[in-house]
Simulated assay, not measured.
Amino acid sequence: MEKIILKKYLPTQSHNYFNGRLEGKDTRTSLQLDIKDKNKEEITFYINKGLVGMNVSFFLGLFSKTILEYGVEDFKKRYVFEYEDENTKKLFEKDMEYGIKAVLREITPKNLLERLRGNN
């Protein structure tokens, strides 16, 4: 299982918060998550203490494609989050759950037809 140290994808070492949809998309591209998703690779995202959270925009840029394409259960099964300490875990878990809910609320061409048909 690949282990990704997420703080490496902050804009500078002085930042402690992940922010911005474009930055999330850039990180997704750098990590080649589209390829890893297609290959059903399992990934551990390591989150160091001192980091305080992830804005929903960054979450959407980084993870929405995976969740929309493969579902929440697949996302939770293959994408494991490991935290350096309990305080960091508490901060990030709320952001992660909020991010998942935001993804599921998003309107995409794929789910718009399903919503219009009343399947959602």
Rank of each mutant, 00 (worst) to 15 (best):
K110N: 11
F18K: 07
F63W: 06
E69W: 00
V72Q: 08
K38A: 13
D34C: 03
M1K: 07
E82F: 03
H15C: 06
Y70M: 02
I35T: 12
V80W: 01
Y83M: 07
R115M: 10
Y98S: 10
R28L: 09
K36E: 03
R117V: 01
F45T: 00
L31W: 06
G50E: 04
Q13Y: 03
F81R: 05
K101D: 14
E2A: 06
G50S: 06
F92N: 05
V72M: 02
M1A: 13
N39G: 00
K49N: 09
V103G: 11
L104W: 03
L60Q: 12
N48T: 12
Y98L: 14
K89D: 06
K7L: 00
L68K: 08
P109G: 07
L6D: 06
S14T: 13
M1D: 05
N87E: 04
I107A: 02
G24A: 12
T12W: 01
Y46Q: 02
I100R: 11
P109D: 10
E23D: 08
Y70P: 04
I43A: 06
F59L: 06
L22I: 15
V72N: 04
V72K: 15
E41M: 11
L60D: 13
D85I: 03
T108C: 12
K7G: 00
I5H: 09
V56M: 00
P109A: 05
Q13P: 02
Y46K: 04
G118Y: 05
Y70K: 14
Q13D: 15
F18T: 00
G20V: 02
E69I: 02
E69Y: 01
Y70T: 07
D37S: 14
S57R: 10
E23R: 15
I43W: 01
K90V: 10
F45V: 09
R78M: 03
L31P: 03
K101A: 14
K40A: 14
N16D: 14
D37I: 03
D26E: 13
L62M: 14
N111T: 09
F58W: 09
S14F: 09
V52W: 05
Y46D: 03
E106C: 12
D85F: 02
E106R: 13
F75R: 05
E84T: 01
D26Q: 09
E93T: 15
K3H: 02
E82Q: 14
F75M: 07
T108S: 13
Y70L: 09
F81S: 05
R105N: 11
Y79K: 08
N119Y: 14
I107H: 05
R117P: 00
I5G: 00
P11F: 07
N120V: 15
K65N: 15
D95Y: 07
L33D: 01
G118S: 02
G24R: 04
